[in-house]
Simulated assay, not measured.
Amino acid sequence: MPYQTLLTGLSDGIFTIIINRADKLNALNTTVMQELGEAFDEIYADPAVKSVIITGAGPKAFVAGADISEFVGLSVAEGSALAQRGHDLFFKIERCPKPVVACVNGFALGGGCELAMSCHFRIASSNAKFGQPEVNLGIIPGYGGTQRLTRLIGKGRAMELILSANMIDAATALQYGLVNYVVEPEQLILKAQELLITINSKAPLALAAAIKAINAVYDETTNGFETEVLAFGDCFATEDMKEGASAFLEKRKAVFTGK
């Protein structure tokens, strides 16, 4: 479907989302957030979509932050409601049963860093910069940044980045474990596509189960080991499990159908 602030396309099972506000460094405003939610509703529902890439338009920014002009004059309740909407969206991305990769092509600051961290993993171009500069505005990260950054890079480093509002470059992000790969800008989407073509060849229901079980590590409302046991068992009810086992024993390549 057409969007005002997003460019989307589907090729070889990979659904690409480009946040298309280059003149605003792809800042997250209400429309972008709403349309990202709608795009993920489409992704969840469409069996032709096997995986997702999120990136930003232009050479400068993935997403350089939230649209601060929308913050002015908010009450406490309105600020909390804004944060909750961000949490709801980023949980929708994090819990997507199809792999989601952030291709960070420049600045990923504030809400942009939080968006990247809600994806299942991240690939950065060599010119990427990451940071949570919210304390410069008298606020804190509100879309999950205090939690996801700490989980990804550890308490000490997260404390330093959030409290100092400093940025780190792509090489440091790789060293910290915030990103999986750093590549030259012209190789960014190609690297993601290469990985996702491999992932897309696997059993879709098994991928969804693995994502759910891995996410359960950080879900305080559930026992991750129990989630794994149940998800493992559920796989045995799928046609893909039967096909995968048969293909292995018959020494042929499995053909998965997502059933």
Rank of each mutant, 00 (worst) to 15 (best):
T150K: 12
A173G: 06
L137W: 03
E134W: 00
S125F: 12
N166D: 15
A171E: 12
Q175N: 15
R157N: 15
G156I: 11
P133R: 07
L163M: 11
G142H: 02
V179G: 02
T150A: 13
F130Q: 05
Q147P: 00
G144R: 03
A171W: 05
A173K: 09
R151F: 04
R157M: 15
S126R: 03
I153T: 07
M167P: 04
A173F: 10
N166L: 08
Q175C: 07
V135S: 02
S164T: 15
R148N: 01
A158V: 02
M159P: 03
K155T: 00
M167S: 13
R151S: 08
G138L: 08
T146R: 01
D169F: 14
G156P: 01
N127C: 08
Y176I: 05
L163V: 03
Q175L: 11
R148H: 04
G144L: 04
P141E: 00
A170T: 11
S126A: 15
I139G: 04
Y176F: 15
T150S: 09
V179P: 08
T146L: 11
L161I: 15
L174G: 05
L163W: 00
S125N: 03
Y143A: 10
G144E: 04
K155C: 08
L178H: 09
G154A: 13
G154N: 08
M159R: 10
G131W: 10
S164E: 05
G144T: 05
E134F: 03
Q147R: 09
A173W: 06
S126K: 07
I139M: 04
F130L: 03
E160Y: 12
P133V: 07
M159F: 14
A124G: 07
G131A: 13
